[in-house]
Each structure stands twice: as structure tokens, then as C-alpha cells.
Design a protein around this nucleic acid. Structure first.
Lengths: 333, 333
DNA sequence: TTGAAAGCGTTACCAA
DNA sequence: TTGGTAACGCTTTCAA
């Protein structure tokens, strides 16, 4: 270490830099002068090798540019940098294989902890991984040693949205489901059903169509629904992307939102304020979730237990849903 | 190194792993068996320290979740992983300070090269940086030792879009400008002007309004334009986000796209296929640009010179622009 | 083609 | 509170 050329032993410099032990004021001053003079910056590679710690946290997201997870990344980045950790962002592309490759790569880089946003790997793998290093996962309910999880309250969100439509007078509310294998999808469906039940509306399977969580899926689901002749006055999509697709399908059929059909989305993507009409949607405080995940992983690293509490979702009401048209009250309920 | 426990000297193993020198077939076989048996994986931290190379490339984007740059990241990731480099993604948030911090952090991590997507730092800084390590920048025209740049053809894209509108019969074409300090913004404006000129249409400053490259800006610009009473039959927004804002403002005023006003965007974001109506937009082959940047940085590392050629933009025609309404031909030209 | 040995820039342990 | 010294796991001369 260069700083030693201007003073003391390398150990002392290291101790000063890391606050590992007390250093006498005089030595401290001498060292600080030398550091300044030499423009010294620690080499994290070397300290990672020697100390076994890298001050890096691996962050696995499924798509780097996902408008949904993007906000979580922002929160994670902010907290991590503040805690003097460097985030390493990688994307798993929703493929367990890629995710495993990312994990291996991060492990070999000796990251101090790992955050996985909605993992695609099975629970057992994650539990095993958590035994090797501190792990935080979102979008899944999981507990174990060295593991901390934070699930969105999808049930509550879907309940909220459905209830809003019911209060507006809608009784025939279609639901566009997400990918069945996705835990978010099933929870959102459950929330929808629960709200119907709570308001004494029978669940009609004919109103539930699959949309694969993408625009095209929402579009096809809506076309399918319209073609089937099933009557409905409102639609709830299990995510905003499917709602965009649904809006296009309705538009092509000459149906107006909200006049002919009310539409509600889920996730409140940035673009949803600028759809025509602006889309009512369920919002998770996703950036806050990222912040919590980042705090959790640093806590785990310090050997603390951590408790995360998913902040409650809220409904952002915009122009895409209005009262049920009274002329359609005659529809079967 | 563990592999040596099962055979030869660490140097030989290193040579085999890196292809630094020839290894006799027998030794090679023995070593490979040992590697397999021990499940050995190189420690990039250690080899980075010893060799001075990290096989990491730093990638600085301005916003990790940008729908525009996201595709570039995909291309970069793909090529880099294929070349056995690991990308390190960080975001500069369009702030020179953050960008500098990112650069320092990546430098201290000893990345072998750097890709900066549309840097916010001044040219001089970038030129200086390129002297320290191989650097590739996009969205800017810059040459120097160890430096390679790839600019989008913004001029051609804007020309293409404007010409399309002119061919549809539009003469009064409003233009929503991006942030003035952004080089993309000025090139797009130039392209618009050039197309007008080529078709004998006088440039009217009253038709050019600033929109800051964001939805809200496009919305306000459009409101401003409508309030000003300036006649126009078409609008070209310097990016899709502003086009979304413009669409909302038109919608609020009861103006229909494309019947009352034709609208064209720029960048062809994923969402633009699903706006109402789907948006005609200029598309850069942005993923290909990412791939080129990644190839360029690996070439630079190997000491090769590199030539990058920005692929030509194309116009994706959707439903948001139709022929100019003949009833409006009386508008001042 | 191979091995021995000297680092790379830190941290961590042990003695002082 | 300090310094000495041995790692950390690999690459890279230099000789053989």
C-alpha cells in the first residue's frame, strides 16, 4: 500500500480506513495527509480477496428495463450506495437457467449478499442458497435462516380494485388473469373473487380469461371475451400491460372507455397516467419495497434478523372507469 | 489452487484455463479431470488482482429501467456474456456527478472497458477517460485514442417522419422539441427542418414547442400550441414519451387522432404499439446498437481499431397518422 | 512444455 | 495502539 511509504505500517492504514481499531490522532493525521497527497483509493478487488468481503450486493431482476421492477432498482440503488455497498444488477429473463447462471456469477464475484426480485427458481434452491449468503427475495413468501422475503399484497390490491368497480355499480366484471404459474397471478385472482363474494356477486368463470401478463395477451383475452358474447360492463386486468392490450381490443371494436366498458389495471406503470383515457390502477409502493429489500440485506449481513412489512397497495383512480351504464342493468347477474 | 492438488503446478493450470500457452494433452486431461472432480471455478477476484484484468465491462446507462436504453442493455448483455465478459450495469441518472461517481467506482473495480450510453459528461472528460481504458460511447460523435463512438442517425429519422407526413398532404406540421442541451434533440429538429425545406415548406417557429423529452412536457407543449391558435394538422414529437403527452392533451380537447390531428413519435418504445391509436414512430435498431457497442469495446481491449456504423432508422407506420383533412387546406402555409 | 517463485493490494492474526 | 507477517487465489516472469 502506497500510504505506508509516507508513514506507518500497512495494518495501521487498513485499520484507519476500515475503522477496525483505534488509531492515535497523530498517526491518523499523517496517514490522511499521505492519502490526500497520493490520491489514494482503496482497491476493492484486493480487499475483497484478502478480507473475503466485497461490499457488493448482487441484485437479480428479471428484466433490467422492466417498467415495474425499475422503480424497485432505484430504491435498492439509493439505499445500497448510502450504506456504502455497490449493487451489481443482472437480469434473469424469467428463465431459471439464466437466473442460476447469474447467481453463480455473483457468487464467484464474492458478493456479500443477494437480492432476487421475484425469483423463478424453486423455493428449495433459494433456501439452500440462503445458507451460503444473506438472501432477500421479493414476490414470494419464504422464511429460513439467512433469508428474508417480502411479498406484495396482491390479494388486497385486487380486492381494492374489484370493490371499487362494484361500488360504481358494476356486477359483471371481467378479469384478465396473469400467467398461472406466477404466484402474483393467483393471489390477484383470489382477491378479485373475494371481493365479489363479499358483495354477494357470484363468480362466473366465463368472465375470467387468461392474458399471460403481456399486452398481446390482454388484447387476445378481450377479443375472446367479446366474441364469446358474455355480457360485462367492466374489466380488471391483473397487470397494466394486459390492460393496455384490452384497451386496444375495445377500441378496435368501437367500444369506448369508460362509457361502454370500465377498465382497471394493476401495477400503475409510469405510462398509465398517459393512456387514453388515463388508466385507473392498483399501485404498489414499489420503490419503497426496493428500499426495504436493500435495508434487509444489509441487516442480514450484520447478522441481524429482519422483519419486512409490505406497504399496502392503493388504488390510483383516473378516468378509465365510471359508473355502470344503467341501460345494462338487465344483464344477467 | 485446488486443482494442483491433483497433478501439476498452478502455473500449468492457469495456462490451460487461460490458453496462455500450450499444455501437453496428458496434463490437460489430468487437469480437466481434477477440475471436474473438485467442481472448481476460477475466482475472478483473485485473477483480477493478479492479472490486472477483471473480464468485466462497466456499462453506464442513464436510467436502468429506461424503455429506450433497455433494449441496448439487452444487446450489450448478450454479446458480452458470449465473449465471456461480465457486464456491470450502473445508472448515471442524467447527472454528471452521478456519472462521475459511477466511473470512479467502476475504475476502482478494475473493469477492462467502459460503455457509456449517451454520456452527460463533457467531451474533454471522456477523451481523458479513454486514455485510461477502452471506452465506447453512444449518442455522441467523438474520436480519439482508445475511444469509439456510435451516434444514432437522428437527423435521418426526423427527416423520414416529417417527409411521411408531408407525403400524406400535411403542410402545417408542429414539432415538439426535446431538451435543448441534448444533442439528440437538436439533430432531430434539424432533420425536421431539412425535410420541410426539401419539400418547399417554410419553417414556422410558431409550430415548434419545447417538451423536455417527457410525457408532461409533450402535454404542456400541445396545450400551449392549441391555446396559441396556431393552425396545424399534424404533430411530430421528438420522442414517444412526448407523443403520449400530446395524445392526452388532444384527447382532453376532444381532438381525434388521426382524424383531426396526425401524430408521429420517435424511438418506437414498446408501448407505442398499444397506444390508442397505435403510434407511428421512428425506430432505431437500438438492440443492434447495443450489440455493436459491446463488440467495439472487446475489440478495443484487444488493441484493435474499431469502426462502428449506426444502422439506419426506419419509420414504423401505425394508425396515428392519416391524410391531411382536405377541409383544412385553407390553413396558412 | 513445465515448475518455482515473486508478486497483485489488502486484511487478519499474533506479538509486542 | 502498533508492527510484522502470513494469507487470499491467481498470473506471470524467469529458468530449466
Amino acid at each position: 500500500m502506497v500510504a505506508q511509504a509516507a508513514g506507518v505500517s500497512p495494518s495501521t492504514v487498513s485499520r484507519l480506513l476500515n475503522g477496525t481499531a483505534r488509531v492515535s490522532p497523530e498517526k491518523r493525521a499523517t496517514i490522511e495527509v499521505a492519502i490526500e497527497a497520493l490520491g489514494f483509493v482503496v482497491n476493492p478487488v484486493a480487499s475483497g480477496l484478502a478480507g473475503g468481503r466485497s461490499r457488493c450486493i448482487g441484485v437479480i431482476t428479471q428484466a433490467l428495463s422492466s417498467p415495474f421492477y425499475g422503480n424497485a432498482l432505484l430504491g435498492i440503488e439509493d439505499v445500497l450506495i448510502g450504506a456504502n455497498y455497490a449493487p451489481l444488477f443482472v437480469s434473469g429473463h424469467w428463465r431459471p437457467r439464466d437466473e442460476q447462471r447469474c447467481i453463480n456469477s455473483l457468487l464467484s464475484r464474492r458478493v456479500d449478499g443477494l437480492i432476487i426480485l421475484t425469483p423463478s427458481l424453486p423455493d428449495a434452491e433459494l433456501l439452500a442458497l440462503a445458507r451460503r449468503l444473506p438472501l432477500v427475495v421479493t414476490g414470494r413468501q419464504l422464511t429460513g435462516p439467512g433469508l428474508c422475503s417480502l411479498d406484495f399484497d396482491n390479494h388486497a390490491g385486487a380486492y381494492l380494485a374489484t370493490e371499487h368497480l362494484i361500488r360504481l355499480g358494476h356486477r359483471r366484471i371481467a378479469f384478465i388473469k396473469g400467467t398461472a404459474s406466477h404466484p402474483d397471478a393467483t393471489d390477484r385472482l383470489r382477491g378479485y373473487k373475494a371481493a365479489l363474494k363479499a358483495h354477494g356477486i357470484a363468480f362466473d368463470p366465463a368472465l375470467t380469461v387468461p392474458g399471460k401478463f403481456i399486452e398481446e395477451g390482454g388484447e387476445q383475452a378481450t377479443e375472446h371475451l367479446l366474441a364469446s358474447g358474455t355480457a360485462f360492463t367492466a374489466m380488471l386486468a391483473a397487470n397494466d400491460q394486459m390492460a393496455y392490450g384490452a384497451a386496444l381490443a375495445l377500441y378496435r371494436r368501437g367500444l369506448r372507455i369508460p362509457d361502454d366498458v370500465a377498465l382497471v389495471g394493476f401495477d400503475d406503470l409510469l405510462g398509465s397516467s398517459y393512456t387514453l383515457p388515463p388508466l385507473t390502477s392498483v399501485r404498489h409502493p414499489i420503490q419503497e419495497i426496493g428500499r426495504q429489500a436493500a435495508r434487509a440485506v444489509t441487516a442480514l449481513i450484520q447478522g441481524q434478523v429482519c422483519e419486512m412489512q409490505a406497504p399496502a397497495p392503493s388504488l390510483i383512480v383516473r378516468d378509465s372507469c365510471g359508473a355502470a351504464p344503467s341501460v345494462r342493468v338487465s344483464h344477467p347477474v
